[in-house]
Amino acid sequence: MLEVQALTKKFGGLLAISDLSFRVEKGIIFGVIGPNGAGKTTLFNLISGIDRVTSGRIGFNGVDITPLKTYQFSNLGIGRTFQNIRLFPNMTVEETLRVGQYKNHTGLNLLGIRAKEKKLKEELDGLLELLNLGDKRDHFAGELPYGHQRLLEIGRALAGHPKLLLLDEPAAGMNEHETEILGEKITRIKELGITVIIIEHDISLVLGLSNRVMVLQFGKKIAEDVPHKIQKNPFVIEAYLGKGEEETHYVVG
């Protein structure tokens, strides 16, 4: 599904990602953890086409995607959410999901698209149900409670039929109950056959959900394994898990 080889990203003199290689198999949930500034969001920005790689290759289903334009990443089947939620505050929930469906119907809606329109409507209803946002369809995105905004952003990404979904700290700012619901939703998404890569500071959530976990520090991979082994890796405990609980999580873009 995703094959990252010798990936490097420099911002001026700063080495954000350094010679990073890993593979993500189809249909799994792949967790990425690491302290702030480890390069996790930069990694997502490279995989989703927001930033250009300095060197290295990102293979998606066998195709090198690094030379593509940003909007083409979505058309290939890569969807994402953002650490700092990026909804369109002046659009309703329904309109937000319609924008997410963008690539599924290009051009103006004129003739002969009735059947397709019906299918899109059905998909939209399905998404609203999956995310428990059915009674919010006409609410403005900017007016939703925080937890719902996070779900809506996931829904917007799902509306584009991603094969790979990148979730950047989806549980940030959620309470325990909301996090639990989120975990169920992510499992449902995996069951739909969508591969998920998740960056998350909530360590129990990420270890509980993921099939494999990668640990980043200073842009380098320091460990990658199944969750219960990651938990016991001494390097990981020292670098991240040991001080994870009390730490204030400053958000780094």
Partner: peptide, 14 residues
């Protein structure tokens, strides 16, 4: 309207 609100986010949505 999506482009008006954020070009980057619009691009991410294809």
């Amino acid at each position: 309207r999506a482009t008006a609100e954020s070009e980057t986010t619009a691009k991410i949505l294809g």
